[in-house]
Design a protein around this nucleic acid. Structure first.
Lengths: 156, 156
DNA sequence: GTAGTTTAGTTGATGCTTCAACTCAAGGTA
DNA sequence: TACCTTGAGTTGAAGCATCAACTAAACTAC
């Protein structure tokens, strides 16, 4: 057991504890609003939103997984659920049979349009309006830097 | 359908997308390291760590839930698992039979001591070392402000 | 052209989280 | 005393996420 661990000093600990609280609680709060008002969780919403902004409201599965920050397996399960509810359709891509293209249906689009205002309002209430514009910029830089480290680790 | 939704402008959207990425990916990365190296998830680790810093390594369930940022129900399930593994013990509180006190066992403490260096290293790699000290201070302020809004909503 | 490899996606099992329903103890209140 | 209410925790069921195993298509190279 190496005892040369660089433990966190007081400032580091305080910053980390605050972030950990955020990681535990904000997702739950966002999921709660979406689930209550629209019967979607945050990941499902993100998938629908990503599709709605894609050309032809369509995207291949692995692209979509990246866009929505989830694994391909998770996406596959979720798209199956969304397909059952009539919000998404899947079909194989002609030019390469390995590829599956998911498409947002009109019902799915309509459902997203209903869900969006409540979700945006929640994001505004919890995040945007809680911060100054300057802090929001700081948050973007901070998140990007952390994500870069996480992605570096998990992709290789 | 009211159409007076305050949609997000470009800066707001960029900040939110970056944060959303963080919310989706950082927990997974931390869970992955802990699970692989210690067979714990982040919430379980947090519970053990909270107990280890409590007087007598003991704390009543609802306190502990608050400290670990989880619901009482979630904590109850998790403590049951941790009890099965011999890391925690539970007993009723004499002075008020409604209260349950959870105590970290010696085995649990030893296990936590083994798990801590790897977890701290991951936190350092993903978060602390990715940021300047100034950014870490910003992150604490930002997180606290967001959490205040979330808690205001969910507790009342 | 066929054998092996890589790429894309799906599936099933397992485990964790959440929600609602429940138990049990303690504090009123009449 | 009996009754109601509140508070603390537990439990079971249902849904969701994760992991490993799998299928199938396409490329590679002999």
């Amino acid at each position: 057991m190496a005892d040369d661990v660089r433990w966190l000093d007081s400032d580091e600990l305080q910053g980390w504890i605050a972030l950990a609280g955020l990681l535990f609680k904000l997702p739950g709060a966002l999921d709660f609003q979406l689930q209550r008002d629209s019967g979607l969780n945050h990941f499902e919403y993100t998938v629908l939103a990503a599709l709605s902004e894609s050309p032809d409201r369509s995207r291949r599965m692995s692209d979509l997984a990246g866009e929505a920050n989830g694994s391909l397996s998770r996406l596959s399960h979720v798209v199956k659920r969304l397909e059952r509810r009539g919000f998404v359709r899947r079909r194989p891509f002609e030019e390469d049979g390995r590829i599956t293209v998911a498409t947002l249906t009109d019902e799915g689009y309509a459902y997203l349009v209903e869900a969006a205002p409540g979700h945006v309002e929640a994001v505004r209430r919890y995040v945007i309006d809680a911060l100054t514009p300057e802090q929001l910029g700081q948050l973007k830089a901070i998140s990007d830097q952390i994500l870069a480290k996480v992605d570096a680790d998990r992709s290789c």
